[in-house]
Amino acid sequence: MVTHEEIRAIANLAKLQVPDEELDGLTEDMNEIIAFADTIASVQVEDEAYEDVNGLSNVLREDVVQPGLSAEEVLQNARDRDENSFVVKKHA
């Protein structure tokens, strides 16, 4: 069973702030998700070989340069920039 501590740790890794009053609900949700995954994992399969998702493999592209975005386009949603760089402010 997942604990409140684990929920806090997972939220922390994802840089999410979880108010204490939401911990019970999230813990319950997470336990259901894990139970669902356990159910799938418990299915016995005859062939252990790795299966391609959607029956696809080796979808590859050639090593040829394609035009990309201009720096202006890349930076158009930047909250803060300095010339052509994104700027990330140090936060406490």
Binding site: Q66, G68, V74, L75
Partner: peptide, 27 residues
């Protein structure tokens, strides 16, 4: 030493002005 990035057609050339070898995939 490929000409392009691993998952998009952007150039891998070293140097260059910041954020000039980018596309929607690699950003």
């Amino acid at each position: 030493a490929t000409k392009t990035k691993i998952f998009c057609g952007c150039s891998t050339e070293f140097g260059g002005e910041p954020n000039t070898h980018c596309c929607p995939v690699c950003i």
